[in-house]
Design a protein around this nucleic acid. Structure first.
Lengths: 191, 191
DNA sequence: TTGACGACTGACTGATTAGTAAGTAAGATC
DNA sequence: GATCTTACTTACTAATCAGTCAGTCGTCAA
């Protein structure tokens, strides 16, 4: 049985992404990552020259993953409500897996204290998410599945901000608070 | 003319609060505060033994300030919509004053990487805010001023999370996005 | 006039941070 | 079999971090 070759680069990205969502970008170090993987500090620098490079790589990988997720969902699921529930599920998974918050949220909260190179990626990420939500809400309302006042882009801001904000509030006030917010969003948008 | 005595303790709290909202708790140091005030590192330690103590003091002062604000509003204003708009104004002021986010939001985002002593205060803060909002929404709906499905506490989660999340999104996507979210909340709740 | 006290300063410490430079061992390529 | 490349390690640097401690200076009460 051949040993599976270790993919250190991917493991670094995994560890950095997890720590970003758990503790924030300013609260983990190369040393933390190296310790977690059982390698040395310099090994992390070998794969990512600077922490800013690592940060950008984490965000860009997350954006690609979301794009693939959206593409797959588009092919498999036509019902707007089930699509929205699939989006909710991303956030529910974060909550369950160690009280993580969404990458977009932590990057915005630390926006003025993260390296400048990361800000463009962080901005692109929230635009991705909002554009996807806006399109879903527009199509869903046309089909009579959703009901809300104003423009789809306006409602997308409320839905996106609620998911992001409620995940954070759940940390300090209890995970069940997130479910409360989710259920209220459903109630608001049911025709 | 007598010189106004300097209130260093208050100035430290002001600087720490501003930096917390601008950069996050993990992204400012005693040195940053000292430099801003033109004093030495040790002067900050004289007033606040540890950074955790300073953090707790910032949060507790903010809670007292909110309680006084709520008390004053209760005495001066009876109309539920105008009360809600006054609450919105707190967040609008944050946005305008250098792209700050609400203290509650950054503390929850960094929840797992701030000193343990601060977490109880951070939790108490979000409970304060949510309880105030819940009471306002309950009274306002009884009077026919607001309209929303579900329980007042559920709607308070959506309103609170939207304000918190939208302030963060506004950083990465443009301040006008916050106004969009605000207007959508108004549309949703108008009878 | 003294002496206690509040509000500091100057000069540290030890830990942690991102980042670097030189060396090495294993495998692929010629 | 020599050479190159990949993926590291060991050993370090300079900066920054929270925190400490002994001393100083001005004010005020006795």
């Amino acid at each position: 049985m051949a040993a599976v070759p270790r993919d250190t680069r991917r493991e670094i990205l995994d560890a950095a992404e997890a720590m970003l969502q758990e503790r924030g970008f300013n609260a983990f170090s190369y040393h933390h990552i190296a310790e977690r993987l059982g390698v040395r500090n310099a090994a992390v620098h070998y794969h990512f020259r600077s922490k800013a490079d690592l940060g950008v790589a984490v965000i860009e990988r997350y954006r690609r993953r979301f794009a693939r997720w959206a593409e797959k969902l588009e092919a498999e699921e036509k019902d707007p409500w089930r699509k929205l529930e699939a989006f909710f599920q991303i956030y529910l998974d974060f909550k369950i897996r160690g009280g993580k918050i969404c990458p977009s949220g932590i990057l915005q909260a630390e926006y003025h204290s993260i390296p400048e190179e990361m800000r463009a990626s962080a901005s692109a990420l929230i635009v991705d998410l909002q554009q996807w939500l806006t399109r879903l809400l527009a199509e869903g309302r046309e089909q009579g599945a959703f009901q809300f006042p104003g423009e789809p882009a306006d409602q997308a801001m409320v839905v996106g901000a609620t998911l992001q904000g409620a995940l954070q509030i759940a940390r300090a006030w209890g995970p069940e608070r997130f479910d409360t917010a989710l259920e209220q969003l459903r109630r608001q948008m049911r025709p």
